[in-house]
Simulated scan of single mutants.
Amino acid sequence: MKVDSVHRDDKHRFSKPAVPEVRLIEGIGVEGDAHAGATVQHLHLVRRNAAAPNLRQVHLIQRELIDELNAKGYDVAPGDLGENITTDGLDLFSLPTGTNLRLGDSAVVTVTGLRDPCNQINKLRTGMLKEVIWREADGTTVYRVGIMAVVSTAGVVRPGDPLTVVLPPEPHEPLGLV
């Protein structure tokens, strides 16, 4: 398990360009990213409650999802879906809430939940939203456009850095939308 790529953008745009490294700041997020802050920074959440804690400081997507979307004919590169960190070799969607992910030498993020997909995904690639959100036969909605985390321990993260998973104590709480 490793970090595939890292991304940052100081503007509220949907996609984020790749950078050589990101610096994670405890309780804030990715230094220089538009979504960094102790309180919510996502524009639709700010309108609801600007004083709410930012549970979406770091957005992670697994490389395997990007590969799957490309295999289905969508031209998607790491960072296109707005993630800060693209991982390789880890099923992010199987992690419980409260999982700690050690990234590189010292950075640790704590998983808070699933990213809530929005229609901007279809603006990026027409029809792609149905590939990352759907309803199962039993009525359960499946969300697969990454997970969100907060920075628990500061550090620098680079492509190729190792990624280590530390599960929280049981009972495990499944990921919900944040």
Rank of each mutant, 00 (worst) to 15 (best):
P117S: 10
A149R: 06
R63H: 11
P96G: 01
M128Y: 06
L103S: 06
V142P: 02
G37M: 01
S152G: 12
V178T: 14
A52E: 13
G113W: 04
D9C: 12
G27D: 10
E68M: 10
N100H: 15
V111C: 09
Q41C: 12
G98R: 06
I121M: 04
V30E: 03
R144F: 02
D161Y: 02
S5L: 09
R158I: 07
H7A: 03
P20I: 09
D91L: 11
V145P: 00
G73P: 05
T97V: 13
G176W: 07
A38C: 06
R8F: 00
T153P: 01
K2W: 05
D75S: 15
A18G: 08
E136Q: 15
A51T: 15
I61M: 13
V165C: 12
G139E: 11
R63D: 05
D67M: 09
R144W: 02
E131W: 01
L24H: 02
D33E: 06
N54T: 13
S152H: 10
L69V: 10
T126H: 12
L60S: 03
Y143P: 06
T112H: 04
H7G: 03
I85P: 02
T153G: 00
Q57P: 08
I25S: 05
A52N: 14
K123M: 12
D80F: 08
H44R: 13
D138P: 11
H59C: 14
G104W: 03
H59F: 14
E173K: 15
L101R: 02
P20C: 07
T164P: 00
I28Y: 07
V46L: 11
F14M: 14
G37N: 02
I61S: 00
P174W: 04
E64G: 07
K11D: 00
P162G: 15
G113K: 09
A34T: 01
G146E: 03
E21S: 14
E31T: 05
T97G: 00
L43T: 09
G32P: 04
M128H: 04
L124S: 04
G113Q: 11
R115C: 13
G79V: 10
V109G: 04
S5P: 06
D67Q: 14
H59G: 04
L129Y: 12
V6Y: 00
K16R: 13
G104D: 01
R48T: 13
E68N: 08
D9Y: 06
T86S: 12
L92C: 07
L69T: 00
D88H: 12
N70L: 05
V142C: 11
L69W: 04
L114T: 04
L55Q: 14
A38S: 15
R23S: 05
D105Y: 00
V22S: 00
D105E: 15
V156M: 03
V157G: 05
K130Y: 09
N70T: 08
T153I: 09
L65F: 03
D138V: 11
G104T: 04
G146H: 05
T112F: 06
V151K: 00
K123V: 09
D4Q: 13
T164D: 11
E21R: 13
K2V: 10
G113T: 10
T164I: 12
A36N: 05
G29E: 05
L163I: 01
